[in-house]
């Protein structure tokens, strides 16, 4: 069953985020894709995540489809103007991509081409509305298309440090939904009770919410997040638990699995971000009993 059908049927979806390589050696990407085939409903391919130049989301998405995995590609407005974005979106449709996630993208200062010029012609709302318009057969300049694309379109929710920021994000999500977003990808969850508050606040939005589950990978990563990302709400207990474990990788897998299990009644799926360790996704899902 397709990602869209599962969403509409209210079923729990499992997505895996998989980044494309920087270069044309796609062997790791393909091997990881083969490992998770059958375990996940779709693969989410980032669009130059952190503004690091690499194979594009569209290229990665097509590779996933060739492996028999459904692809969801992210589209970001940082690097392309409305002309290039619309062209890419039409290309995505004819190449078999059925799902898009509109994202703002990180600032270019995070990337590996820091001398570049960010475009930011559109913002999330502008891009969502552009997709909506293309689906209606009209481009942003008002010209009629020869054949209109169709997609399942999602957007992201930014991390929120406190309830005030959460309220603001929900208000913003409302705008994105009005502009055509059909599902929301929420930030990584480390504290399920904190996420439950968001779900409660976002109940009126009326679209599926899919939180991210991040494979911590090491005590160092967990410590870094707990110190530097207050919006992550990563409990200290979690850092201690990984540190005290004799099998830290196994513990991280267990934590990710437990988180997914706790989210089952709360969200309509998860997006697993294994940071290149996609081979561990089947083990995470086994822990999660999905």
């Amino acid at each position: 069953m397709s990602f869209r059908k599962r969403l509409l049927a209210g079923e729990f979806v499992v997505l895996a985020e998989m980044d494309t390589p920087k270069g044309v050696d796609i062997s790791d990407l393909i091997n990881n894709a083969r490992r998770i085939k059958g375990s996940v409903d779709a693969v989410v391919v980032p669009d130059m995540d952190k503004d690091v130049m690499r194979i594009s989301a569209l290229g990665g998405g097509v590779l996933m489809q060739q492996q028999g995995l459904e692809a969801i590609i992210r589209v970001c407005f940082r690097d392309r103007n409305r002309v290039a974005l619309q062209g890419e979106i039409l290309s995505a449709h004819v190449l078999g991509i059925q799902n898009l996630i509109v994202v703002p993208g990180e600032d270019v200062s995070f990337g590996d081409h820091i001398e570049t010029k960010a475009v930011n012609d559109l913002d999330e709302i502008g891009l969502l509305k552009a997709i909506q318009s293309l689906e209606d057969g009209i481009d942003m300049a008002g010209f009629e298309l020869k054949g209109a694309p169709s997609f399942t379109v999602g957007c992201t929710v930014a991390p929120y440090t406190d309830e005030e920021e959460m309220k603001r994000e929900i208000a913003f999500a409302e705008k994105k939904i009005a502009a055509g977003a059909e599902f929301l990808i929420a930030p990584p969850v480390y504290d399920v009770a904190w996420f439950a508050k968001f779900v409660e606040g976002a109940r009126t939005l009326g679209v599926p919410i899919i939180p991210t589950v991040f494979l911590l990978k090491s005590v160092g990563i967990a410590r870094y997040i707990s110190i530097n990302e207050p919006s992550a709400h990563l409990p200290e207990d979690l850092v201690t638990r990984i540190r005290k474990s004799s099998d830290r990788t196994g513990e991280c897998v267990k934590i990710a699995g437990e988180t997914i299990r706790s989210l089952k009644g709360l969200s309509q799926g998860v997006q697993i971000d294994a940071l290149g360790w996609e081979h561990l996704i089947p083990a995470i899902l086994e822990q999660a009993e999905v």
């Binding site: 703002p104 600032d107 930011n120 999330e124 709302i125 992201t156 207050p230």
Partner: peptide
Amino acid sequence: CSKRLLNGPCGGSTGGKCEI
């Protein structure tokens, strides 16, 4: 806004500060 966003913040805002 570093990204010239017109409708709300991106995911990079933490505690009222920009990701840059």
